[in-house]
Design a protein around this nucleic acid. Structure first.
Lengths: 191, 191
DNA sequence: TTGATTTCTTTACCTATGTAAATGCATAGC
DNA sequence: GCTATGCATTTACATAGGTAAAGAAATCAA
């Protein structure tokens, strides 16, 4: 069984028929390092399943300050989810931090399956609920914990990542500057 | 049409039959000021529709520090949503800040309707997506904006609330102390 | 290997916000 | 009219974290 199928069945088990309909909508795509899956200002139309590689989702405000909202690593979906579900213009950039392999589908074609495949719509509901729970957790961490504790959580949540991406991306994920991350690292290193 | 019905149809229009099944699961409940709808440590089992009054949702950490995650005002659902969907122990307290009128149902009985009423499951999906979008927005505000800007957003999002609840609850919502909120208010007042 | 570039760390200084304690100011009972 | 209580503000001091600039280290390209 593919990564994708077992991931999807982990949301909600789907019938063979539903799975065939679903998987037929996805086409492979490669993303080279530094390429974007989606940019702010576009209308999100696609959703992707990340098979390998690292993608960062980040928000950039008017002054050009970036905030790394999330790092995607296999297995997971990528895409401008808020834009997909609200139909509004996407505000989140998603950039490959390494070469990536994806399976990509039109989001509209997937929602079209909801009519005939309630098991797929259920999986979509579970996915959405899961996203919400993640965000709620992160909100609490951002407000109640200081950067040092958030760094520890980052290392627990993304153990492989620390070696593979620059520290300024990690700092941005933690909501601090590389300067501050460096201070925290020195402090944690024991001095 | 009731508040509740029009709110629910705003998620996804449902058939008369589905609506009858759904509404029959809800019973009125009153909550006096300072009573809790749910407490941390319990298993969430109920979901409520808030008809009138104000409820705060807050997280309290081990040291007893509180963070006001959200204020509920009509029309909206209340309940330990993360706990309901994950079946894990609830970590969020929900306390009435004024006398409240609610309609309350067993969450399990509602999910039971999903089998026969796909229009209700669709509404649940839309609700979950809406929650996610709200959280994503709030996450960005928490990381990228300083407390003064968040205060302005609070006043825009909850214009009625500022007069009706103590400032320490507002400060907690903003992720700052009453001291700092007082400083910000003085500064904004123009001195 | 060398030079150029990118990343990481350090330093000095500054600002936002926290903590604790005191004060002021309402309002509700009595 | 008092007084207790709860809330908002203020003050003084401490800390986390930002900014800017320089230096060190690692990486990449020629």
């Amino acid at each position: 069984m593919t990564d994708f199928k077992s991931f999807f069945n982990g949301l909600n088990p789907v019938s063979d028929d539903s799975w065939e309909k679903l998987i037929s909508l996805f086409k492979p795509r490669r993303l080279s390092k530094n390429e974007y899956f989606i940019k702010a200002g576009e209308q999100a139309k696609e959703i992707g399943f990340l098979e390998s590689g690292i993608i960062r989702a980040f928000y950039r405000n008017n002054e050009g300050v970036e905030y790394n909202k999330h790092f995607f690593i296999n297995p997971c979906f990528v895409g401008g989810y808020a834009s997909l579900v609200t139909q509004k213009v996407n505000e989140i950039n998603q950039e490959a931090l390494s070469d990536c392999n994806l399976l990509v589908a039109s989001y509209n074609e997937i929602t079209g399956l909801y009519q005939t495949c309630p098991d797929i719509e259920r999986a979509a509901r579970v996915l959405s609920e899961r996203f919400f729970v993640q965000k709620e957790q992160r909100e609490i961490e951002l407000v109640l914990l200081d950067a040092e504790k958030r760094y520890e959580i980052f290392r627990r949540d993304f153990p492989q990542l620390e070696q593979e991406i620059p520290q300024y991306h990690i700092a941005s994920y933690l909501g601090i500057t590389p300067t501050q991350l460096s201070r925290i690292r020195r402090k944690m290193a024991g001095l």
